[in-house]
Design a binder for these strands. Structure first.
Lengths: 334, 334
DNA sequence: CTGAAAGCGCTAACAG
DNA sequence: CTGTTAGCGCTTTCAG
């Protein structure tokens, strides 16, 4: 593999000059610069990132931690992060934590070792203290989607408001008994969507009935039976708000299997605007989050942090960026 | 950040001894070893990967190149790769090429620079010559899913056979006029599925009618109109084989909008066993590829290559690993 | 069994 | 404007 010395020799200059030219320093003679560039091209030289990183104390690499890249929303987020990172010369490392604090911790310990410039964490759990120690130690971190009020940069949506809007829409449409298919409530965005649901009910003078909230037991499929039971009881709802699209799809299957028509007999609304939601029959009304843009925003913010740390610019205080959601009405609601 | 010298000082030994202990060399006194380990723990030391990589000429990092992580099948593959890599101490870098040879090339050029130990390429296009130059230069590479007969390691499925099985099943079920929703045929797996379709027809004495094959024009949605047109013509098929599940879903929507019943009026079968396929109504019959296992197999093979290159073991000849597919019959076929 | 020294490829003072 | 030098943190001969 060709290195900087080879280029230097070929161009008849010293290694430092090659370095200067290739790092875009302008204090180099036009002619010398030309020779170096030519030599570099001729030798198809590209600098060794490891050596550079060792010298500079950074690697131009960031880590993206997600619960699982297989979950609906993360591929799009990942693409936003990756596109943005690449444009700024950063490479991204993908880490699946599987909602396992131990796996998360193992990653952090390994990656902290000076060779990762910063973290985008979309996998944070309430008890992820090793993540907290990251920013306490001055490491650039931005939280994505899961935010617990810590003093750190974050990119989120207003889940309370978004859920409120969805439920409110249902109520305006004349629905009186609205059930909730609720994900694991230790996750802050589910807790918030729950709060938004309650607020919308309250503001419209509708009673909150705990029996109408379906709690996820093990996995998305648990909603299949929960929905069936609820629908067959004497509490049959006229609408169901699911806190994610996959849950909505399962709910719809259960409803279908009970012989109910959507939206004729019952309306369904989801959350996330996953790809499937527009494809199923009937197409699902849902709340969309700007996933790609959230990935972009998180990456931009992280890179700003990294740069400002390197420049020793006085650190700005952490800020949380709240991205807008949209209510998308398709044909699963009347 | 604490480094090897700090540990050495703390333990009262030299840096080389620390290195020996931490690299698991056994030629170290029991007591010395204990002291070093203790010091390392006390200081919460972990070695600098960049320095190590620079010295050793490798980074324990591999790159996974995919067309887009948002495509149905890649998250699962990525998870298989990542799990396997992590278990062997490798980190994976994710690269989305967007089917763009220029992006792919930019990645390769950047990553070749001694700091990536090997590549898993799931994005290869017929004219990806920079990928070819990779293994020609002795770089560890394994191709995933897209294989053009080159002399290089690959992990694939037998797409001809899988498509043959699907179409054959349809024919056995009494279908006589089977249409094909065909993806971009410059991609080898689509070309193979097309070949399997033709072979099944031929073997069963059914005519091959070019008018029954729907060619993707721009994106998956193009099948919506193509399907509608076909169905309204006097060639109305009694079954449609879609070369991927998303295509099948679009086809089903078109059929539904034409008032046709599935599978009553027409059967539909897909390919990939994507998550959605079991969720839609009716649940889609499809061909499943062992995506996770393919990721695992590719990672294992790559790591073997990397290791054997380092050990200077004589290189085994490249081999292609063909993984099994399954025909999954649900309710979209009769 | 252990320490000293060299060097992986690069950049950043520091001289000239 | 350019070359020389030192050193980033680690592993690995080579001596002892």
């Amino acid at each position: 593999m060709t290195n900087i010395k080879d280029v230097a020799k070929q161009a008849g200059v010293s290694a430092s000059t090659v370095s200067r030219v290739l790092s875009g320093k302008n204090c180099v003679n036009r002619e010398t610069r030309r020779k170096v560039l030519e030599a570099a091209r001729a030798l198809d030289y590209s600098p060794n990132v490891l050596a550079k990183g060792l010298k500079m104390g950074r690697s131009n690499t960031i880590a993206l931690m997600v619960p699982s890249i297989e979950n609906e929303i993360f591929p799009t987020i990942a693409r936003g992060v990756e596109d943005t990172a690449r444009k700024s010369g950063y490479t991204v490392i993908l880490c699946n934590t599987y909602e396992d604090v131990a796996v998360e911790q193992a990653y952090i310990n390994k990656l902290r070792t000076r060779w990762i410039d910063g973290f985008i964490v979309a996998s944070m759990l309430p008890n992820s203290d090793h993540i907290r120690s990251l920013w306490e130690d001055g490491f650039p971190v931005v939280l994505l989607s899961r935010y617990y009020g810590d003093p750190v940069d974050a990119v989120i949506v207003d889940n309370v408001q978004a859920a409120y809007d969805a439920v409110n829409y249902l109520i305006r449409g004349g629905h009186k008994r609205i059930a909730l298919a609720l994900g694991r409530k230790e996750l802050p965005f589910y807790a918030d969507r729950w709060a938004g649901y309650r607020a919308a009910l309250a503001d419209n003078g509708l009673p909150y009935d705990e029996r109408l909230v379906l709690h996820e037991t093990n996995g998305t499929n648990s909603f299949y039976h929960l929905t069936k039971e609820l629908v067959k009881s004497d509490l049959r709802p006229d609408a169901i708000f699911a806190t994610s699209d996959p849950k909505a799809v399962v709910v719809m299957r259960a409803l279908h299997d009970c012989g109910l028509r959507i939206p004729g007999d019952i309306s369904v609304i989801g959350f996330d605007n996953a790809y499937i939601s527009s494809m199923i029959e009937p197409p699902l009304s849902t709340v969309s989050q700007p996933l790609y843009e959230m990935g972009v925003a998180a990456a931009k913010r992280l890179i700003r942090r990294i740069r400002s740390r390197e420049d020793k610019t006085p650190a700005e205080p952490p800020s949380v960026e709240v991205m807008p959601t949209d209510l998308i009405i398709r044909r699963s609601t009347r």
